[in-house]
Design a binder for these strands. Structure first.
Length: 654
RNA sequence: GCUGCCAUGGCUCAGUCGGUAGAGCGUCACCUUGGUAAGGUGGAGGUCACGGGUUCGAUUCCCGUUGGCAGCUCCA
């Protein structure tokens, strides 16, 4: 048979061989590195016997898929160690993830000390270097086998496999686990590993099920790589908006005010004001008209929209629902119904559509206690909200424009490359969660998919992520911990126009039902702020900095000149302060740098006489002496164009 | 909401095997301050998150509440 390798070379063998044997035949080093194989694009175990001509790629730790096999093997070693130390623990599942692996057990929770013990046991197992072996069992035998071993979760997993599924197991020494593979050949290949943390996790990801104990770990082929990864992890955490944002006095929180109710401090308020002014002006350019609607409404409104039926647990209800004589209100969780009534205020002609309503809209959502987090999951937030009322013919163009605007906003903030796109559909197995019927959903979803394909957007599709009134396109970003959040969403709503009896008079004189596009341009300001804190590690582009320039007189004698410089800056709408403290100039510079002020203007006699300033920046360090007016022109241009200036000096240089 | 961890001056943390507390940074005052990443001295500031319990005595041990963190679930 002829085996075509990745580099195009063809190897010929007279008899069938395993992937591992072929790797060993190519080179001993490759066999040592091999984690899995890929035959004609399909990932296979190293033990897979190759019998016919094919394209074969040997996957190592440097390949994503090879890495997954490596980590999956590490998770089996973790499971064996836990079973040795805690024989009563029941095995659930243990897959590889983006940063390593985890394994879920039914057992008491683990402390850090327990994890250290488990690590020590894993070391022993790796040293024993047991050979991983694969075998298959018929369904009934497999079920009996796992019942005998008293592994109820494994029994449940096997029972859920299709009738004709091949049920495979891997063993290493005494330990056996139900597993589809692939795996490395021997335990000894896991040269460096670490158990990162332990926490609870629901069996099969459902909060109705029992909570299991999950252990997260990672592993590498070299100890140095592991060390590097752990250091990097610590470095990344320094960007965490929840730490950095508090340290930079962007926001804070107070016990007696409550969870999910952050206080934006002057620095944070300033950044959000800058973003809001920009977005409101920008949306006007894109054809939006603004509304300002109440933050709460009677229950009756939400009954019409059916938020009462589908979203009540997420709302803050005011008043006694039980008492029929009392008016019941609710703080708004969404802006939609309010803007619909503005639309409904006057009859609309097809000539007036599309109508694009925009609002800087504060919303309230009663999240559950464990879900609040910094500025990314809060109970009150302000979003660049908008609803576009369109005729069916206008859906595609308006959807496209809404996406274009969102991407323009992302690009301006330098975030475009960090996002992924998710087409969020309903869950056909949970229909009561949604308005409308299957035909409406399928039709609307097909429309959105068609639009996305026309645009040529790369996206994933996911069931069960839609809004209750329609499918949506979500723009997703990851935080420093790798956790994904929706930053921006564009939704196509086929249901609410009918519930609110919204109409337009079409060219034929008939009343017709419009469609509604719910969309945001920059998302919600709090979350976006959190995102840019992490993106820039607090070193915001100048236009977003709460303090853009600090003027530093070298001694008291130049305070007057410094204040004159300050006046000039303020006249040009530059946010600046003067440091009048009786400190040495080096100390003042250090302070300004620590506060991440992008520009420092040092002034003394030489500057005053020539009406100049000595510019230092966080971008280049010393930028030399400049005319004050030239400096102001430059920085105004940088602010106007929202330039993201590259930082050329090393951070924290001693 | 669930599992686990945590809560000591503005911030970062030390500490008390139960006898009511310390450091650094910051802040304030005075002195110093003529040039590009930490000048000096002194002072103020804490019911040790809150509420119960055990105890002669609790910041320390136990229970509860509130808040914070990680993960799960949920979501913009």
């Amino acid at each position: 048979m002829k085996i075509t390798l990745k580099d195009g070379t063809i190897k010929e063998y007279s008899s069938a061989l395993s992937v591992y044997d072929i790797a060993a035949n190519i080179s001993e080093g490759l066999a040592r590195m091999a984690c899995a194989g890929e035959i004609d694009g399909e990932v296979v175990d190293l033990r897979e016997i190759v019998r016919t001509d094919c394209n074969l790629n040997i996957l190592t730790f440097n390949d994503e898929k090879g890495k997954k096999a490596f980590w999956h093997t590490a998770s089996h070693i973790l499971a064996e160690a836990v079973k040795r130390l805690y024989p009563e623990a029941k095995l659930a599942i243990g897959p590889a993830i983006d940063t390593g692996y985890y394994y879920d057990f039914e057992c008491d929770s683990f402390t850090r000390e327990d994890l250290d013990k488990i690590e020590a046991e894993m070391k022993k197992i790796i040293k024993e270097n047991a050979v991983f072996e694969k075998f298959e069992l018929p369904r009934e035998v497999a079920i009996n086998f796992m019942e005998e071993k008293n592994e109820p979760y494994k029994v449940e997993l096997i029972k859920d496999l299709p009738e004709d599924a091949i049920i495979s197991f891997y063993s290493q020494g005494e330990f056996v686990d139900l597993c589809a593979g692939p795996h490395l050949m021997k335990a000894g290949a896991i040269k460096a590993f670490k158990l990162i943390s332990s926490s609870g996790a629901y069996w099969r990801g459902s909060s109705d099920n029992k909570m299991l104990t999950r252990v997260y770990g990672t592993a590498f082929t070299k100890k140095a790589d592991l060390e590097e990864y752990l250091v990097k992890l610590e470095e990344i955490k320094k960007r965490d908006h929840n730490k950095l944002g508090r340290e930079m006095e962007i926001f804070t929180s107070v016990d007696v005010i409550g969870q999910g109710l952050p206080l934006l401090m002057p620095n944070g308020a300033k950044i959000i004001q800058t973003l809001q002014r920009w977005i409101e002006d920008e949306e006007e350019k894109w054809g939006y008209i603004r509304t300002k609607t109440p933050l709460m409404a009677k229950k009756d409104l939400y009954v019409i929209s059916d938020h009462w039926g589908h979203y009540k647990e997420g709302m803050f209800v005011l008043g006694d629902e039980e008492n029929e004589d009392e008016e019941v209100f609710a703080l708004r969780p969404m802006t939609c119904p309010f803007q619909y009534y503005i639309y409904k205020q006057t009859p609309k002609s097809y000539r007036e559509l599309p109508i694009r309503y925009g609002e800087t809209s504060t919303l309230f959502r009663n999240e559950e206690s464990g879900e609040m987090h910094g500025l990314t999951r809060v109970r009150q937030f302000t979003i660049s909200e908008g609803h576009i009322v369109v005729t069916p013919d206008q859906i595609e163009e308006e959807f496209r424009k809404a996406l274009e605007l969102a991407r323009y906003c992302l690009t301006t903030l330098g975030l475009e490359e960090d996002v992924t796109y998710r087409f969020s559909k309903w869950d056909p197995n949970n229909k009561q969660k949604y308005l409308g019927d299957e035909a409406q959903w399928e039709k609307t979803q097909d429309k959105v998919r068609e639009i996305l394909n026309h645009i040529g957007l790369e996206f994933t599709e996911e069931d069960g992520e839609a809004a209750f009134y329609g499918p949506k396109l979500d723009i997703q970003a990851k935080n420093v911990y790798g956790k994904e959040d929706t930053m921006i969403t564009i939704q196509l709503d086929f249901a609410l126009a009918e519930r609110f009896d919204m109409t337009y008079i079409d060219a034929d004189g008939e009343k017709k039902r419009p469609f509604i596009i719910h969309r945001t341009s920059i998302g919600c300001y709090e979350r976006t702020l959190a995102w840019i804190i992490e993106k820039f590690a607090g070193l915001f582009p100048t236009w977003l900095c709460p303090e853009q320039v600090r003027v530093l007189p070298i001694s008291e004698k130049y305070h007057d000149y410094a204040n004159k410089v300050l006046e000039h800056l303020k006249d040009n709408c530059i946010s600046a302060t003067v440091d009048e403290r009786a400190e040495k100039i080096g100390y003042k510079i250090r302070e300004a740098r620590l506060k991440r002020v992008p520009y420092m203007l040092v002034v003394g006699q030489n500057e005053e006489e020539a009406n100049k300033v000595s510019v230092r920046s966080r971008y280049k360090g010393d930028e030399g002496q400049q005319n004050l007016d030239d400096f102001i022109n430059d920085i105004c241009k940088e602010i106007r164009t929202k330039e993201i200036r590259k930082i050329e000096v090393e951070e924290n240089k001693k």
